[in-house]
Design a protein around this nucleic acid. Sequence first.
DNA 1: TGTTCATAATTGTCCTGGACAAAAGCTTGA
DNA 2: TCAAGCTTTTGTCCAGGACAATTATGAACA
Lengths: 301, 301
Amino acid sequence: MNKTLMNIAAVERETGLGKDTLRVWERRYGFPRPERDQHGERAYPLDQVEKLRLIKRLMGQGWRPGRLLAKPDEELASLAAPAEAAPDEVAGGSLHLTVVDLIRQHDIPALGNALRQALHRQGLQQFVLETVSALNRAIGEAWMRGEIQVFEEHLYTEQMQALLRQAIGALPPGSGRPRILLTTVPEEQHILGILMSEALLTLEGAGCVSLGTQTPLADIGLAARAQQADIVALSFSSAFPTRQVAPLLKQLRGMLAANIEVWAGGAGIERVAAQEGVRIMGSLDAALEGLAQWRASHPAH
Amino acid sequence: MNKTLMNIAAVERETGLGKDTLRVWERRYGFPRPERDQHGERAYPLDQVEKLRLIKRLMGQGWRPGRLLAKPDEELASLAAPAEAAPDEVAGGSLHLTVVDLIRQHDIPALGNALRQALHRQGLQQFVLETVSALNRAIGEAWMRGEIQVFEEHLYTEQMQALLRQAIGALPPGSGRPRILLTTVPEEQHILGILMSEALLTLEGAGCVSLGTQTPLADIGLAARAQQADIVALSFSSAFPTRQVAPLLKQLRGMLAANIEVWAGGAGIERVAAQEGVRIMGSLDAALEGLAQWRASHPAH
DNA sequence: TGTTCATAATTGTCCTGGACAAAAGCTTGA
DNA sequence: TCAAGCTTTTGTCCAGGACAATTATGAACA
């Protein structure tokens, strides 16, 4: 009977909640209530870690920790189980339902085929602008509601990534103007935003260079100079902590030459206030518009 | 004259050094020595952050912080500049040199072409086993020596990733036995190890499913069950903190059914002691051998 | 009823300074 | 040359306090 226990660093890894947060919750709310190992250090049982993951998820729906942690387990569980899913605005929803179902059935080959089929039917531009955007949102929301697991989101991302990369690789090189550097900041690991932008902008003939995810700010600055980028585009997912976005953009803005534009997009910038010297792109359409504007104000000579 | 200052969380993001570590270094060695903002909180000037990144890099070469932090700046700088590069064992080194040069010249299209050419000349198996392995090592070492920047490593990874994914996508499905789940743990963001393994194992007809990088342990367990995986394979890069590997593997082992094998590979497991119930794969060849052994001990019925 | 503004509660992150186990380095003896 | 034991180094954990920024609440007002 030796149940598995996790130290505080492991819990931080598994839940994404910082060590300070875990300790202060324990002090204030009495949860989590870890045991102590032979050295007096916190040792969290697995069920408490699982409850923390649930709480983290519910907080993404707008709940505040003080409320949640005061509730008894049964009430938490009832919040976790989604209300009878009103078949909400099923606009072109048949594919969403198919895709979410395939994910939940773990039928990876069928998922890949469904996505590939949609891409070929719609063409890359429409596929990205409509289908991928909507699917990402649907899957994110399904996770928030507890309908799919993190690993299932990973499976989806992996299939979509393969498809988009293949499509991007098949595109002809354009004029290469403007030169756009795409990446995410160190805590942001979601790559689909980058790949969607890369696909659309490359389709329009821009010169995209991707650094992948999680590039230190200092290196974004170095890369922008080395690549002679005209635009640095960052993607923030809805999971990214909103409070960190503004300071990050300000920091990056300060590292770049004034003639380099900074664009920020993704679901994570919806509640972010406007920044001087930074374009907040509320949608992929806005990015395409931004591209047109850049070209209008930088005529080729 | 308002120089940019970073708070301790930003320094952690940029350098990868934990907050506790930054504070204890300051206490013990007197460096870093941040200013304080109007609230009395640490505010790091950019040059100290840069020095911290240098120190982190030198530590990867075997230096210890106590030694490094005692040195004056000039001596640190002399360590940073590499000794006259003895043209070390240039076994098939011409491609390495070409590739590293192309990276340093930021000629992305040429880099992509050189890699694609090598792949087609050698075939996927030899390319992965020999060229990609060697290139990864060469680039990692070039970074350690300060010859290339982090963003240049990102550029390389992005090109290689595109190439490997394309090659994997073109492979025919095999027998699908055994079913292998590939991923990395949450702090490990290097994906090439996964892609290399996926390429080789799929070539041998195994059924590979990738979760991409940074999957929480709990979800690795859930995915293994959902996918009915026979083997869970993890990749650790040389940048991964060695001390964390063993506890992670033990934790994961405890989460999986006993009939599921756990394999760990990559440069990050070289100094890791053997674990009960975990196969430490010292090389990609070892993984192929492991595959053969699995098949020998699990004859199809 | 709905809106605006000031006040109050909540919450994450930072702080100090102490402690200690594990890892790494060193010394000694065979 | 190696192994075993000793010493130093090093990262991570701890307690408990503080506070700014965000969010909720209620009062006043249109």
